[in-house]
Nucleic acid binder design. Structure first.
Lengths: 166, 166
DNA sequence: GTAATTGCAAACCGTTTGCAAACCG
DNA sequence: CGGTTTGCAAACGGTTTGCAATTAC
């Protein structure tokens, strides 16, 4: 379940105006300006994307309101600080992000074949985080858990590859 | 406990010649050549490094046997395939590795202040991996768990920073 | 009006690659 | 010897940055 697409339907997860509002509020209350570029970027992200990278975003914006990559790269850290966006993982040398506002913490399954990302949540991870932190005298501030393998679709196609292969 | 240093003492974890042997064997049985450069790289890694990046390694090799970064970059994938090395994480735009031969699976605690990496193992993570994989119809092939926060040393120094501060 | 922001193009920087010389087997 | 591997320097590709023109407030 839960590929990179659905989510607008989920209650409390798709309130675009609320998410945009949170970002605007962050900007204003930190002395940044609310520009049309920042709004366009934020809207494009918050409207459609669960996971994305800068290039996809750039392409998508190109059709409605072209915005330079520089501005996208400059907007992203602001969105992250405002809490509506998170870095998720680095792949093929570039970062992937996902929207964060109002979403519950979750982890990712990565299919090594089709490269799709699936989500799941496992509440006990928070407990592991706490326990280990206590054990090690750490003050924990977050964690990341990722599983990689083959999704149900790809298991059949790619086939066994039993030996040591590679 | 368990910063990035100790390990030679642990039984079964520091057998340099055995690790080097594993790498040589991999090379030979795959038609690659055992060159002095590859040996120097492998030895430097296997002798001293729990965690490292290419630049550190390059610097260290410079004193005994200068080797071009290109060769280091070309040797690393071989070492990974041979099983003596693993990619661990990307930080500040470059990859960090750790030696893998004979080491048990473990996860990392990352101090956001001093940037040191601590290790721990939490066996239940393997169970979470299996359970989620079963749930989602995945064939899992591995997982990664990371906790970030402040290590015991840095908690006092950096101080609370209670509010929302970035 | 004035400081912040944008777009452009150049700079960065870790990593990869083409090629001639050096080397393993 | 013959095919690999090395070192060098140039190429790559994602991200950052300097700067003049534009824009938010």
């Amino acid at each position: 379940m839960s590929v990179t697409k659905p989510s607008q339907e989920k209650p409390g997860c798709g309130d675009l105006s609320k998410e945009l509002g949170a970002f605007r509020t962050y900007l204003k209350s930190n002395g940044y300006r609310v520009t049309r570029e920042r709004e366009a970027i934020a809207e494009a992200i918050l409207r459609n994307h669960e996971h994305f990278d800068v290039d996809e975003l750039f392409m998508e914006l190109r059709s409605r309101k072209p915005i330079s990559k520089a501005s996208i790269y400059r907007a992203i850290p602001l969105m992250i600080k405002s809490g509506v966006l998170t870095e998720v993982y680095m792949e093929d040398g570039h970062m992937h992000y996902e929207k964060a506002y109002g979403r519950e913490h979750h982890s990712h399954l990565r299919c090594l074949n089709c490269r799709r990302i699936f989500e799941f949540s496992a509440p006990e991870l928070a407990q592991v985080e706490k326990r280990i932190a206590r054990q090690e005298g750490f003050k924990s501030l977050g964690h990341k858990f990722e599983i990689w393998g083959l999704c149900s679709n790809c298991q059949g196609q790619i086939a066994p590859a039993k030996g040591g292969g590679s």
